[in-house]
Each structure stands twice: as structure tokens, then as C-alpha cells.
Nucleic acid binder design. Structure first.
Lengths: 202, 202
DNA sequence: TTTTGGTTTAACCATATGGTTAAACCAAAA
DNA sequence: TTTTGGTTTAACCATATGGTTAAACCAAAA
């Protein structure tokens, strides 16, 4: 049987509720019920709704500002980097499909509150300098179509993340059910990098 | 001077507040204050928070399920359609940059509630049949790289919409301010279709 | 067996929040 | 000038909600 501590049970429940409802839609009682504990314990262990939320939010945030560094700063050739990044990023998001919408929703509504905290947590934000230089270099060498590095990064991340956020919209526009949609998403792990790389070819 | 009716003032204020805070974060008092009217008038004109919200939501939704039909069902060649669609879609989103996050956030949290209503409002959802056929046709003729039509549509829409949703994240990752970000967005009106079309070329 | 210190609970509390109501208002019609 | 019907307001109301507290619990140490 599971021998989780109360503290852990609360965190797990809070994660679920906050991701589902967002901060303002989440109810402490709801979290307590899902954790199967008395509501007072939420405050005993985490003080306040805000404090509890901050913990869940920061953890979630880490998940979508991914190990860009690792890949971006390596010495691999550009196309290889793209393949690797897209593959790993999609897998990461796929593991927690609710995270992107949650994080971006809360981040948009309280930019000041987190921008700073998040920056220190990732020590100054990710360093994409090397990747940027590489893109410019390849463009100058005439190996790829010229493109603003920021634009390329934006395109790649959009293609990775947005399908998860836009799911209900896509299902409607495309008239497809959950299963068909999942199939499409699965294909994207390789499809996206192929698309991007082809877009860069001359 | 503005001679707006109370009803219109309420709607405008509600739009602002709901888009900013979402349903559960929005406060009726806040809407009343922004509209400069007594809170009771909200109920006098719109009955309840839910009813008021539904109106704002449906209007917002229309904005991001755009005139796909018009373009998708036309007889223009594929690349031309893509250019036209991307251009118009980005302009539409640009006019209301808060809408996508708002709609997708609420839609994700209450799929059942709206999926149906929205379907009837758009009479059965957009018809992309012709565009789908066209993509398959071009692929078979060997004019473009083969790609699942749904995947292509997803890619295009992701590239158009996501930058607006992911703004705070991108600004952090790329270390750029509002102005620089706007510049990047402006470029995308043409940049995105170029990117997509190039990705389709053999 | 008793003490101790962390854990859990039921009962509360203050405030926020969506919503209602009766009375006051006010411009146009009679 | 009076009546009428829609509009606006202040005062309320019931309930939801985040948070607190004193007492009960309970396992391990003494």
C-alpha cells in the first residue's frame, strides 16, 4: 500500500486541482478532499493558498522552460540539435500535458510576481547564445535559409507546445476524437523536426 | 463624448475583466466598477455572472475559429491559400491578443459546456474538406512533401497563435523587452507563411 | 507507565462574493 | 401637471471561502 506522508498527499492533490482549475478556480476544500485529509492540515503544512500555489507553480514552470541549455549549448550540428530538442521537448510536455496552459495562464495574469523568482531559479534564464550564433553562422554560410534566430526558436517551441494547449479547438476544427488526436500528437515527435528542418533548407 | 448605453458599458467592462482574469478570477464588483455603474445593473441587464460570461465567451470564440471556411473552400492554389490564411489569421489575433489564451483556458476547463453550443453557432464547425483534399492531391502529384493535412493545419495554426499565448515565456527565454517582441510578431505576418511554404517544398 | 511533541480534527471566524429587493429617479407620454 | 414604465441605487442576504484555534490523539522517548 502507498505510505505517502500527509505533506506529499497534499502536494499531489494541490497539483491536480491547481492544474485543472487554476489558482482562482481552485478551492482549498477541494484539495483537502482529494488528498483525503482535514482542511486545516493544508495550512498546517503549507501556511496559505498562495504559498502552496507558489510551490506547484514553480515546479510546473521548470517543466516548460526545459533543458534548453543542455542541447542549445552543445557542439552538435544545427539540424541534429533541432531533432534532439524537439524530441525531448515533446516527450517532456507529453508527460504533463496540462502544464503549459496552466503555467502560461498564471504567468500572463501575474507577470511581475513570477518573472523575477523564475529568473533566479533558472539563474538568469536559459542561455541560448551559442544556438543563436550557430543559426546566424549557418545562414551566412548559405547552408540554411536566413531566419532570425528568435523567430526560429519561437516556431519550434510553438510547434511543440501549442497542440497540447489548443487540443479542444483542434478537435473541433478537424472533427476528430481523442484517439485520433493522440495519434496525431504521437507522430509529431518526429514530424515537427522534419517540418522545421525542411523549412530551413534552401 | 461617448454616449454608450449602460448595457454596452457593462459588456465592454465584462470583456476586459473576463479576458484578464478568466471566469473564476473575475468579480462582478470589478466589472461594475470598470463600467462605472451600480453592481445591481449587471444583474438587471444580464441576469447572472454565467449568462454574462457566456456572451463574452461565445464572441471571443468566434474570433479564433476564424473565417477558415472562406479561404479553405476557395479555389485558389495551395500556397496562395496558406499565405492568405496566415496573413488574415495573424491580423485577426493581433487585434485581440488576449483572446486565444482566454478561450483555450475556459474551453479546456469546461469542454462539455461549450463544445456543443459552439458547434451550432458555427453550424457544424468549419469545413476544411476542400483544403484537406487539396493538400493530399498536391502531395500525390509530387508538388509538395507528403504531410497529413491535419498536421499541416495544426502547424499553421500553432505558428500563428502560440506566440501570443507564450509571450511571457518567450520574452524570458529570449531576454527581450516588449518592443523587441512586438517587432518579431510583426514580422511573422509574412515570415510564417514563408516558413510553412518552404517546409512543404521538396 | 507517564511525558512529550508533533499531528489531526471539529468548531469557528471574518470577509468576499453573487445575487435580490424595495424604494427612488427620471424622461416621455398623457 | 400628472402618470407611467423603464432605470438606477443603497441596503441586504445567504453562502462560499481562506484561515485560525483549542482540544484531542498518538507514537516514541523517558
Amino acid at each position: 500500500m502507498e505510505v505517502t506522508t500527509t505533506e506529499a498527499k497534499i502536494k499531489a492533490a494541490a497539483q491536480k486541482v491547481f492544474l485543472e482549475k487554476g489558482f482562482s478556480g481552485a478551492r482549498m476544500q477541494d484539495i483537502a478532499d482529494k488528498a483525503g485529509i482535514n482542511k486545516a492540515l493544508l495550512h498546517y503544512y503549507y501556511r496559505s493558498k498562495d504559498k502552496l500555489f507558489d510551490i506547484i507553480f514553480m515546479e510546473s514552470f521548470q517543466k516548460i522552460i526545459p533543458k534548453i541549455n543542455l542541447i542549445a549549448q552543445s557542439d552538435a550540428p544545427l539540424f541534429e540539435k533541432i531533432e534532439k530538442f524537439v524530441g525531448e521537448y515533446i516527450v517532456a510536455i507529453n508527460a504533463d500535458p496540462m502544464v503549459p496552459l496552466f503555467v502560461l495562464h498564471e504567468l500572463t495574469r501575474h507577470p511581475e510576481k513570477f518573472i523575477q523568482k523564475v529568473f533566479s531559479a533558472t539563474d538568469g534564464g536559459p542561455k541560448v547564445g551559442k544556438l543563436v550564433a550557430q543559426i546566424q553562422e549557418e545562414a551566412e554560410k548559405g547552408n540554411i535559409r536566413p531566419i532570425h534566430p528568435a523567430t526560429l526558436l519561437m516556431n519550434i517551441m510553438s510547434l511543440c507546445i501549442f497542440p497540447y494547449i489548443g487540443k479542444p479547438m483542434f478537435q473541433m476544427v478537424l472533427s476528430i476524437d481523442d484517439k485520433q488526436f493522440s495519434t496525431l500528437l504521437a507522430q509529431r515527435k518526429t514530424e515537427v523536426s522534419a517540418f522545421v528542418i525542411n523549412a530551413l533548407r534552401l
